[in-house]
Design a protein around this nucleic acid. Structure first.
Lengths: 273, 273
DNA sequence: CAGGAAGAGTGGTCTAGACCTCATGATGTG
DNA sequence: CACATCATGAGGTCTAGACCACTCTTCCTG
């Protein structure tokens, strides 16, 4: 149970937020009303603005919905309106499958131009290189190739290839925080057909992903999935016009790191604006 | 130019927000600081909480960034952390290509089971059915098939197939607000190979999309893109744990429409949590 | 019994301050 | 000259109210 008062040093709205979050996960169901703002005001001995700040945060997260004149309610779980930086293993487990991996290659080499560019490094920078066959319940699902700059995690592969590269990065304070992925469809190469034990169909889905921790690219990876066994679900938000800042006055840089360019390869055609 | 005062009936924070939005698009560049909160307080003759409400909105939208002790700045354009509900035409134009469409079929028929399920209707419900070949700068890019319940827009195709089905829906107050899409890779059928004038490669990317306006499904569509000319860019957010409301106490419904189920077809493997 | 009015309760907006932490640059001081 | 200190000003949190708009229920009236 969450204590009603704020711990010393903890902001009051954080305490209210925590209380509401706990309420939502343990007591309330979708559609239920939370206590009114004024009653929370009394319960916590804070002003209404503070209560609203806590509720605002949860509304922004999509956990709660306000309805003027009626109250504030637990929002229905939205299909999750964002793609997430998940790994093959996490995805498989989430679907009740047992993930597996067979290491096909594991080496350290100078980064090829394409890889170096994706990692924002110089060509030839030493990188770890791992190629794995990924399976779900023992069935081959994809061939996955990853590159990670050696200087970020020199001992990454000292104890063999870790089950999860993301987890290994997190242990080294290189938490993956965001990424970008390009998806294409293509014919499998003979090697891929062989590795994935594909019969009949030849189409595969290829992905190229850049993973970032903070402002730096920490990993570049490509995967090749069986077209007949893999699909991607993408929730789509309304295409609202976005506010675009004025162009740079003359030239000069922006004074901060600039948006990384699109991943190498063909110009993306689908999606964002 | 935006007036400094609020128009009668307009909320004050809306006026401040509009002023800042205008400032960002016409005067400031990425990294520039906006006026301090206290100076905006004087400029608009409002309290600081009101100014903060306006700034909060823009921060939530990703337009501005706060930095305690330093100021509030124009945020770098985020790679756009969401896929958007865009159409082939909008996407093509955004990339400087000229979109085109050839209508291959246009008819009204009873909804097949799969289509009906995707639209949350009974099998056999009358639907408009349109099949179009989509081109960019004259080059065939995809074959697109759409189904729309007739009762939502009886006169949709009376004047021929509109250039944009989404625009036609908007005109009828059926604004598409969100959607969900499943992407797969597959071998093209002989008909598709022919229509798309594909040579050499046979792989295509298939998409199945449900488009929703409000709570109702307004359109189901499938597309088949040339694998060698089309790719999808997907920005990925960190996989944070999400707040999950308590399960329904006993049974009964949630008192509001429930999250629509996943689109028909194979179980999605990639993406959201 | 039907319809409308009133009241209570909810979130929405807003004020005019307060004190806090943090970043930065100017000012001294060793 | 290098470093510590301090003043300034930025955003962060918080108060104790106020009035408005909206929804719903209850109760009164025709």
């Amino acid at each position: 149970m969450v204590r009603d008062g704020a711990r010393p040093g903890e902001h009051k709205y954080v305490a209210v937020r925590a209380y509401l979050a706990d309420l939502v996960t343990t007591e309330l169901a979708v559609g239920d009303a939370i206590p009114s703002e004024r009653s929370l005001t009394e319960k916590f001995g804070v002003s209404r603005m503070t209560v609203r700040q806590a509720i605002d945060a949860l509304v922004t997260e999509g956990v709660l919905e306000r309805a003027q004149g009626r109250g504030t309610f637990v929002a229905p779980p939205r299909a999750d309106f964002e793609m997430r930086l998940t790994t093959f293993g996490e995805e498989a487990r989430r679907r009740g499958l047992t993930p597996g991996a067979t290491v096909l290659r594991c080496e350290q080499l100078p980064a090829p131009a394409v890889v170096a560019e994706a990692l924002d490094r110089e060509t030839g920078t030493p990188v770890h290189h791992v190629v794995r066959l990924r399976t779900a319940d023992g069935n081959p699902m994809s061939v996955e190739e990853s590159w990670i700059p050696v200087d970020l995690a020199p001992d990454l592969l000292d104890d063999g290839v870790p089950d999860s590269l993301y987890a290994a990065l997190r242990e080294r304070d290189l938490d993956p925080t965001w990424g970008e992925e390009v998806i294409t469809a293509a014919d499998a190469t003979p090697e891929e057909l062989e590795a994935l034990q594909m019969q009949g169909s030849r189409a595969v889905m290829r992905t190229a992903r850049r993973t970032f921790g903070g402002d730096a690219a920490v990993m570049y990876s490509r995967a090749c999935y069986r077209g007949d066994r893999y699909s991607v679900f993408v929730p789509l938000r309304e295409a609202r016009p976005t506010l675009v800042p004025r162009a740079r006055p003359s030239d000069g840089d922006a004074g901060r790191p600039v948006q990384p360019s699109a991943p190498p390869g063909r110009i993306p055609e689908g999606s964002p604006r």
